[in-house]
Design a protein around this nucleic acid. Structure first.
Lengths: 264, 264
DNA sequence: AAGTCTGTGTTCGCTGGCAAACATAGGGTT
DNA sequence: AACCCTATGTTTGCCAGCGAACACAGACTT
């Protein structure tokens, strides 16, 4: 058992104690007026929400699980409530690198579901959580109602594009330590916690570098008292200092995201 | 005079003989039923075209000219007829790298114009040509008519995102020679010509590398008889061989683009 | 023709990170 | 407790490409 998954997560990670159990219980919004934590769903007008809610399901996001496969048609659209999804580009020779993050401010698969297109990138769970989801078909039906879902979708596209373009720059110019610091800060922002449960191996794949390189860079940060590392856990002790180690892309991405929210 | 422009093109390049004059005269579509060469405009139904045409202007694309500035609001939407635009991400310390190409199959600025947002990346003319353009305001007005322009816009977004994500991978893993070969092939496809008028410096900025690195890589290709270089000109002699030197991203991008067209 | 600027050819030391090991420790299983 | 698997710590050789020069040649200007 505990088979190694191709992205550096072990299948037993979530439940067997390497990582603590998911903090947030499954919300009971199905039977109440309460909205999910996902901000796209939360910000929909009552009318649209009323049409969508019956089609929504909820499930756990298990670290390492691939919820959207690159090159395949997208069957489901995901609205994360907590935890973190990573959009990963996959090369022919097994190269992998992150091209975007998707948390509760966002959705995953909407882009492809819209046009019945196949996925460009893989969506992998990086940090445990929960997510609402609905079928791509139901999603398209709602889109055809010409409600404000379209508007949300466009805003989400803009955010995805901004992320991917920023990653194109970052991956070209910035060193492992800078990218690592950037990733930790972004992850911390998304899960709203200084404690991040993830392995060096998983980070390495997102940064598109060697696992040992991540370990070395983390050691540097730990010696400097900026982070504290445990087995499958990284705790940020000094956000400001970490920020000074991160490349400008952290600020750029925050700015893009802020604009996304501001335009709502 | 002939001031050096920040992207490696000289201001006099187009008219003073380094590059030959633009091949395509300004089309006379304004006064006729003829459509521009731009494929987005060409594929619009007559009804939409009828509304848009009065708002369209045409201008030359001068190599080196920045037509959309990153961080600023977008005033105009461009529909290239020939030539090539490059979407460039700019770092704080002057780092520059391409995050997408835009030719006559595409448009530039539509994304930002739609929501009155500021541009994420800079759009620079890389290869001389002509382009139709209209004001962002007129563009938004047409979008509000709920014609099929929206659909084209979404398809274009999908294409931009696919490009940016592919570049994120490519910039991380592939060496200068592979990226150079990829770029030359893509450029050749766009301008539908084996002869490409561009300097090593401009290519270097798009690949996010040193100019001398481009020269070295080109020398290798020239010795192998795959390309022929002149001052400000590169001619592809053997497309198949060049393809074998390019990274997989060339095929991936072609595939994405093909899907874009196929979905029309 | 002379002068000047731009574009190209070439070299060389340095370094970040790749590629590939091997060692050790945490945590679960039996 | 013994065992095993996974995650982390650490090292070493190696190389692509950076960073920085310098030289030469094409093409325009005067």
């Amino acid at each position: 058992m505990a088979t190694v998954m191709s992205n550096g997560h072990s299948a037993t990670s979530l439940t067997k104690g390497l990582r603590p159990p998911v903090q947030h219980r499954l919300d009971g919004w199905q039977n109440s007026a309460t909205r999910p934590r996902n901000q796209v769903l939360a910000s929909l007008p009552a009318e649209v929400w009323g049409r969508i809610a019956p089609h929504l399901n909820q499930s756990l996001l298990i670290p390492g699980k691939v919820i959207i496969h690159e090159g395949r048609p997208v069957d489901h659209v995901y609205f994360p409530n907590c935890g973190l999804l990573s959009l990963v580009m996959c090369g022919r020779s097994g190269e992998r690198v992150e091209a975007g993050l998707s948390g509760r401010e966002c959705m995953a698969g909407g882009f492809e579901a819209m046009g019945e297109a196949s996925a460009i990138s893989r969506a992998t769970v990086q940090i445990a959580g929960t997510s609402c989801w609905m079928s791509a078909e139901a999603f398209r039906t709602e889109l055809s109602w010409a409600g404000c879902l379209q508007e949300h979708l466009l805003r989400y596209f803009q955010w995805q594009l901004a992320q991917a373009a920023q990653y194109a720059l970052c991956n070209r110019f910035h060193c492992v330590e800078e990218r690592l610091a950037r990733w930790l800060l972004r992850a911390s922002d998304h899960v709203e916690n200084s404690e991040i449960f993830i392995t060096h191996e998983a980070i390495a794949q997102m940064l598109g570098t060697r696992r040992s390189g991540v370990t070395v860079a983390l050691s540097t940060l730990e010696v400097a008292g900026i982070v504290n590392c445990g087995r499958g856990r990284i705790t940020i002790l000094d956000h400001a200092a970490l920020r000074s180690h991160a490349c400008e892309c952290y600020d750029a991405l925050r700015k893009h995201e802020h604009r996304l929210r501001g335009n709502v």
